[in-house]
Write a protein that binds this DNA or RNA. Structure first.
Lengths: 147, 147
DNA sequence: GTAATACCTCAACTTAACTTGAGGTCAAGC
DNA sequence: GCTTGACCTCAAGTTAAGTTGAGGTATTAC
């Protein structure tokens, strides 16, 4: 297959640096779309490469796939997304990243000398009491939630 | 049980704000230790409260439990850890946090205007190329070149 | 002395983001 | 025209950090 206008899953994998299994997975999550050829094999538009690129960058930013899928909902169906379309999304993620960075900086500033001091009590220490809300957050498996 | 010198798992849970099941879990991971009373129930030294506090703070820093357990290996067995002992650990985590913050800041700086541009290729874009492999080739950053 | 808690163990379930494998089809090269 | 490699689906496994539940014992309160 030499056509550049449509890509097989293997070609997308190679060009994007993402495993075929991951591409399948992204498709089940609605992050990318494909049509099938006569033999039931996936075919992608070239545009999928940008989508995958954006997905990978978003992941570096710490955005979960579900949120990425959600952001992609706002993308136009009819036409290929423009730079402006993508920027609308990245502005949001950039703001989130800013927040995360600021939170970590605050945490770092609080950390100095505090972990070994006597104040790590649930009620008194700012390190234990993030937002002054006392263990109000629902429990559950959360990977790196605060980061 | 009114003794303050030793705590039941429920008391530790209440005072630390951590679920009993989580304390059990931490114990299986070697993060905390207990002995048993006549009726096979766990008993903890008061000191466990600090350990749990440190665990929770470390998690906010983004340190995985396995790493926390590892760091705790360096703690003295014979005596109760001192502020200096804890600081030795927190210094390491603080450095890691610094690194993480710096990485995110760099990422943020690269993000601006880049996600919507034409450069999200695996080879050219710094956002796709975390390790900065291109720098070695003297290609130079071309963030907006392809758009 | 008995009912209500608190505790015990062990197995299975949860979420995220995938990977691995089994069993089978399709396409491409020679 | 046949073999190799790419692709298909679907189920199950993986890691982290726990939670939930079942079935049973201990402790506490009245």
């Amino acid at each position: 297959m030499k056509t550049l206008r449509q890509l097989s899953v293997g070609q997308v994998a190679k060009r994007s640096g993402v495993a075929v299994s991951a591409l399948h997975f992204y498709e089940t999550k609605g992050l990318i779309k494909s049509w099938r050829n006569a033999g039931n094999q996936r075919r992608y538009p070239r545009e999928v490469l940008r989508r995958v690129a954006v997905i990978k960058v978003a992941q570096r930013l710490g955005v979960p796939l579900a949120d990425i899928a959600n952001a992609f909902q706002g993308l136009p169906e009819a036409r290929t997304p423009t730079a402006a379309d993508w920027n609308k999304i990245s502005d949001i993620w950039r703001a989130q990243l800013d927040q995360r960075i600021n939170g970590l900086i605050k945490l770092r500033d609080q950390l100095d000398g505090c972990i070994g001091c006597g104040c790590l009590s649930l009620k008194v220490c700012p390190l234990r009491n993030p937002e002054d809300k006392l263990a109000e957050q629902g429990t559950g498996a959360r990977l790196l939630s605060g980061s």
